[in-house]
Design a binder for these strands. Sequence first.
DNA 1: CTGTTAGCGCCTTCAG
DNA 2: CTGAAGGCGCTAACAG
Lengths: 360, 360
Amino acid sequence: MSTISDVARAAGVSVATVSRALRGVSTVNAATRARVLRAADDLDYVASPTAASLASGRTRVIGIVTPFLTRWFFATAVSAIEKTLREYGYHVLLIDLEADSHLERRALTSQMLSKRVDGLITLNVPLRPGELALIEKLTLPVVAIGNPVPGHPLIHIDDAGAARQAVDHLAGLGHTKIGYVGAVPANAEHRLVPWGRLTGFRDAMREHGLVLNSEWVITCDWTAQGAAKQSTALFLRDDAPTAIVAASDEIAIGVMAIAAQSDYRVPQDLSIVGVDNYVLSDVLKLTTVRQDVIAQGRAAADTLLHILLSPTEEPGPDLPADMVDNVLTVPTELITRRTTSPARGAFVEAPPLLTTPADR
Amino acid sequence: MSTISDVARAAGVSVATVSRALRGVSTVNAATRARVLRAADDLDYVASPTAASLASGRTRVIGIVTPFLTRWFFATAVSAIEKTLREYGYHVLLIDLEADSHLERRALTSQMLSKRVDGLITLNVPLRPGELALIEKLTLPVVAIGNPVPGHPLIHIDDAGAARQAVDHLAGLGHTKIGYVGAVPANAEHRLVPWGRLTGFRDAMREHGLVLNSEWVITCDWTAQGAAKQSTALFLRDDAPTAIVAASDEIAIGVMAIAAQSDYRVPQDLSIVGVDNYVLSDVLKLTTVRQDVIAQGRAAADTLLHILLSPTEEPGPDLPADMVDNVLTVPTELITRRTTSPARGAFVEAPPLLTTPADR
DNA sequence: CTGTTAGCGCCTTCAG
DNA sequence: CTGAAGGCGCTAACAG
């Protein structure tokens, strides 16, 4: 474990020069720099991050705050963020707030953050007043994905718009009896995204002149199992809907499973549209409104790095080009697969293409 | 941002006493300690982790090395590890080695580890010689989950045994034509677990006196999509198997999907058993050999903490009770759901219970 | 049981 | 463009 002075000695320069040369800051004579790099390489020198942090006040570590890690959206986002940050020599401290129940979570504490991270990316975590005050006090740059953090950049999709795309598709197929699975319990803490999707659903139904039967709107936690359990009763009713908008693909899969077990055929008896384009959605032939989570993760990392690096000499990424007023709305797109079909007996103006594209 | 000397001043003691009192080491007079804690609390004091690390040489950060994060096993394990470590004041640095292709991965470098982590937990990552030399040089304690790291503690399941349990179940149902999906390409780097499961399958088939048709052994990457794609041909054959052992539940789901699209009914025409007990397996009624990933994550964290803390005054967790010779084999268990049924016309000695337990 | 003090390894003015 | 030197905030002997 060689130190900076070993390198300085080997290169015949001072430690200050080594520090400058290795970090690529200020102007160092090209020849000197080369000698330093050579010496560092020879000695397998790696600067001590803790010493560098203590002296500089920066850690090159970003905290990722997530309410869960075991769901597709979160794991995918974390993975994308990690890869982007690493390109710039930044590291990821994982802060998983999951508690015993899905309805509560652990708090973000000063121990987790203070002097430990240079910035934060939150994944669909609505920060509490105390937590907001904390990051304020620590003057930590924050970028939010999904659920906004007031006063900080936001990367998200148009949740209401996504639900609307789903309704448009079903209405276009002639469906009029459309239900919704994925309203969340009132006490759930991360409720903005579910709320947005439900609102979009309601608005779109109204715009299409469709009746919204409140008994067809099912509340459940955000899992396939919860969705399956809560929607069982729906398929025992005489007046069951002919189509379902699911708030997420995982929910949609739960609905598909329970519908099958209730002897409903999908899509002949029931059409289903999800939101996300989950890993398994392709193979399960689920029609869905796709969101690009990797793009969101990358955009969040780029934004944070831009904030962190722009006041320094180091080159950082640009802000995402389409960001306006600190908000980037990543577009969503309907992907038609086999879980939706025209409503029975409905007059459909433009019959949709129901065949599946060749396997990719 | 108060420092240790602010606290010392406020409590009327020296910085050394503050340090001792706050870390709970050595013997500090109870009254003094109380005064220190009080002062620290009043000042919202949080010790600078970088300064502490620089002085002590320990970071209280553990690196988790994973080849992916977006698959169930890995995300679940990371989450469990994080929770356990946090109970002891340790933090998680996430090292996701995923590269562009699933067949390759990025290397573990000195920059990622040196002076940055106190230890490593690897998730099914076979370390390369250079990487082994690196952790050797850094004298980093390592605990492996799944794929072993020579010379370090290992937490795993009996992969061959898991496949064997699957075969036993199918053979018990009278199946004789049993296929396998989930052999891996020879160039895949993380091949020990897949290999173990395939070996167990082969051995169990032989023990049951069953013929192993090599055309019923399908190679694919470890995803539902890959499995679906590669096993399509299987269901076009005249001599298709009547049962499939899938190397993982995600693979099993891919097979279920493609079987359904080939007009095979599950389980009437085809029985399927997976391995894992993936989140969606319950809702999809997939019979599987369950492995407890959370227990594995916790055991790995406990083991590493034990190694790290036993030479200090700090209390750490015990080693997992059933660990022998540095190896803990977590048991697996068959869960019967609806994707398996007796082979048609087969004489079944003890007819299995095919009904699903009430929803839990 | 408590205080003093010398580093830990690097960054960052400030001179030159 | 380069060197000297003072911290960054804490821990860990070592005395007392």
